[in-house]
Design a protein around this nucleic acid. Structure first.
Length: 128
DNA sequence: TGGGTGACGAATT
DNA sequence: AAATTCGCCACCC
């Protein structure tokens, strides 16, 4: 996977927003796309998180030591679909992990469903 | 370079 | 309420 300057900016923006999702809250792929000014790219937000380990590794390789992204602190599990469910993706291991991490934050997950009325985080804008 | 793909979302059965 | 369809568009062959 190769990163253009364009896609690097995209990934940085995504991770910057994800880092701002408060503990005990969740938001959607689409809302992150909206917040970074690319409302049509919700699917790409999903892809960015799907490959976040690899992407962050490569971003860090090319980044100065000051602003490295700590992948272990990136709360990717707080991003779910707009319908409030943990997005299905072939293997269930990741989904189970996400459910456990959400539950650890006090978020109630029924099956794969989270109440966005209760836990949703949908600001109109954020600092990037 | 054209067509398949998808951690999406909204509308429509 | 749940499943399908459809629009979307950057990626990746």
């Amino acid at each position: 996977m190769k990163l253009t300057d364009e896609s690097k900016a995209f990934h940085y923006a995504v991770y910057a927003v994800v880092n701002q999702i408060p503990f005990g809250c969740a938001t959607s792929y689409g809302h992150i796309a909206y917040l970074i000014g690319r409302p049509q790219n919700s699917r790409l937000v999903g892809a960015s998180l799907k490959h976040c380990h690899e992407i962050v590794r490569q971003l860090n390789l090319q980044s100065s030591e000051n602003d490295l992204i700590d992948i272990d602190r990136l709360p990717w599990w707080r991003v779910i679909s707009a319908s409030g469910i943990i997005s299905p993706r072939g293997n269930t291991a990741g989904e189970i992990l996400q459910k456990n991490l959400l539950t650890q934050e006090g978020i109630i997950v029924e099956g794969t469903k989270v109440s966005l009325d209760e836990n949703g985080w949908f600001p109109d804008d954020v600092d990037l």
